[in-house]
Each structure stands twice: as structure tokens, then as C-alpha cells.
Simulated scan of single mutants.
Amino acid sequence: MLYELLCGPMRPVYFSTIILVILLLMLVMTFRLFVNRRKKAYFSLSLSILVVMAQHILIISAGTDAPGTGNWTGYATILLKAVSFIFLNLGIYQMYNSSRTRQHVLTWSAVVIAVLLSLMYFLVDGFEGNPGQVVLLQNLGIELYMFLMLFLCHQWISPWVGQWNRYQLSLSFYFIYQLIHLADVFITGSAYPALAAAGSTFLVLYYMTLFLIVFERVVELLQAVYTKSITDALTGLYNRLYFMNRLKQYLSHEVPVTVIFTDIDNFKKLNDTQGHDKGDEALKKVALILRECVEEIGVAGRLGGEEMVVLVTDPEVHPGELAELIRKRIEAEAGVTVSVGYSKAKKGISPDALVKQADEAMYQAKTTGKNKVCKYMKQKQLNAGGHAG
């Protein structure tokens, strides 16, 4: 039963149906990208996938991928084979690059050449010979042209595709398919159904690999959009909205968290005397230290300006010791100093209140000498002789 399905007369229909399913999934992804991002590249890729689908719909309707002589369905099938390959690979290129006039000229030149070569389908229709020889001559130009297209894609497109190895693998699959297809049609005369089935299998692998390329690109773009929406562009730390949402989440589950609030000392003076580039460099260095210090025990964010915060989620970590470690590393490695304050969450406290407490502790450090760590203490405790540290 399986052998009959793969190698029988319905083989082209079976394999083209599989390919259509793969192409449909690709089309859904690329069209959604176009709707969400409105980039011309995704619209072009969607159109190219539709062209490939049209080719395989013709194969299914004809029931064969080796069209006979003298009919328009056969001509459209061999022409779409070349045109769909050109446009689909251009679409893969456009997912990673903006196409310029040069790329458009080369693409349409390749399409025009494919159309001219495909006209052999009708030019040799009156050729004196048996039908098999006529079919061979009809398809020969396009079949050899496909090898040229593979070489050009390897040379001109693969270096510009982010998933270089996967794209090279897809071209290898198509190359093997094309070799097997030529051997099946031009050498054995389609006498071995298993050989044709092997070729169709490699064609399916080609489209599956392209699907993985598109899928991986979609994931990359979604990750990039999400990361951009939750992080600060300059420092790479989480932005205020994301940090506060995370803090709210932990507090709602009564997790014993601590907020550490840092503020770079004399930051305005640094910007005024040495320039904003120097200030930005200091922000990046401080942010990197914060990320490294809390990589496995919490998250770090930037509230704005030179104010950066740490949410300590590991109850085993002593916040005062961590705050002092942060202060020492910044002083030694960032070329600036910071005033640091921290506050432990109490039951029922709101996210804004906890951050405000840490901010008040930082302000106490700032107004009592700078470059130091202070723990939040209620005003009545301070009045009673309590101390910070």
C-alpha cells in the first residue's frame, strides 16, 4: 500500500499535496507578518509562495509532474517551476535584506530568461520524432536553467541569509532532487518509479527546510519585538513598566522580595563636564554590573535617568551584602560611584510603596556622604536612634 502510494501513478498528487500543506503554513506565517509589520518583503514572499502553490495545484489537477506535449497545462507547469523557484528564493533573501533596484533587475531578468527558455515547449512541438523525444526537448532548457539558478542562489543569496547553513541545506536538497529528476526523465525514461519517488522526497525536504527558515525568522522577529517592548534601549535593562509588573507579580504571591535602588553620584556633573557620551558609557557599565550581580537571583531595571533598580527574588540572598557588592564593583569597574538603598517587602505593601521605600533609603545614602548603602527604616525608628547600613 505504501509503495503504491509513493511509487504508483498517484505519486505526483501525493507529494504535491504534502508540499501544498507546507506552503500553506508558510503563507499563513508570512501574511501575518505582513499584516502586523507592513513590510513589502513579507508581501513579496507571500506572493512567491502563492506562485509555488499554483505550480503544485497544476500538478495535482494534471495528475502528473511530467506534462505531455501540446497543452497549456504542461507549459504552465514547467514555466512555474522556474518562476516559483526564483521568486521564492528572492523572498527568503528579502526576509533579511531590503531589495534594491539591482536585485529587482536581476530577478526580472531571470524570469524573462525562464519565459524564453520555456517557449521551447511549443517551438519543438512539431519536431519529427517519438513523443518521448519531444518531451525531453521541451523541458531540457528549463531543467538545465534550474542548475544555473541554484548556482546563482548559492553565490548571491546564501551569504545574505541569516540562517546560512539551513539555506545551504535547502539548496542541496533541491540540487539532489534536480539530479534525480533529470536521471529519471532523461536517462531511465521514467522506468523506475522508486527513483521518481526519491526525487519527490528531496523536493519535500527542500520545502520543509524553507519552512523552518521562515518559522525561525518569525520567531526571531517576535523575540526582537518583545525584547524591544520590555527593555531599555540604552542599557539593555528591563524598562520601568516591565519591572513594576514583575514586582507586582511577586508581591501578589507574597514572595519575600527586596528592592535595591541605585543612583549614580554626580551624574549631571559628569554629563556637563565630560559630555553625554561619557554619561551613556557610565550607564551601560553600571547596567552590566547589575545584570551580572543578579543574573540568577533576580532582575534589574532602569526606572529613568541614572536610577536603576534590582528586584531580589531569592530569599537566601542577604540584600545588604548584595547591595554592598554592587556598590564596590561599580566603584572599581565603572569609573563612577553610586548611592544605594534597599527595602524588604512587608505583607500587604504595594509595588510603588516598596520602590519608594528603597528610593528613600537611597536618598539617605545620597545625603549622608554618597557612595554608600542604606537600608530603609521607618522615620520613628530613626528618631529613636536607629541607624542605616
Rank of each mutant, 00 (worst) to 15 (best):
S172D: 05
P159A: 02
S84D: 08
V317Y: 00
L50T: 07
E307F: 07
Q364C: 05
T30F: 01
K284R: 13
S158Y: 13
R329C: 00
N130G: 07
L5W: 06
S229H: 02
F211G: 03
Q249S: 14
S98Q: 15
T101C: 10
L179W: 05
E281W: 02
Q364T: 13
L210W: 04
Y207C: 00
R38C: 03
L222W: 05
T107I: 11
Y206A: 04
Y174T: 05
L247Y: 06
N371H: 06
N139A: 01
G141D: 01
S46W: 03
P193T: 02
L382N: 05
Q103M: 13
S252P: 11
G385R: 09
S99R: 15
Q357Y: 09
E316Q: 14
G236I: 01
G275C: 00
K284T: 05
T77H: 09
G305W: 09
Q55A: 04
A361C: 09
S118G: 15
M53E: 15
G386S: 04
D232L: 01
V219I: 15
D263I: 07
V225Y: 03
F173Q: 02
N89M: 14
L88A: 03
N266E: 06
V373W: 00
L79K: 03
V13S: 08
H253K: 14
Y75S: 03
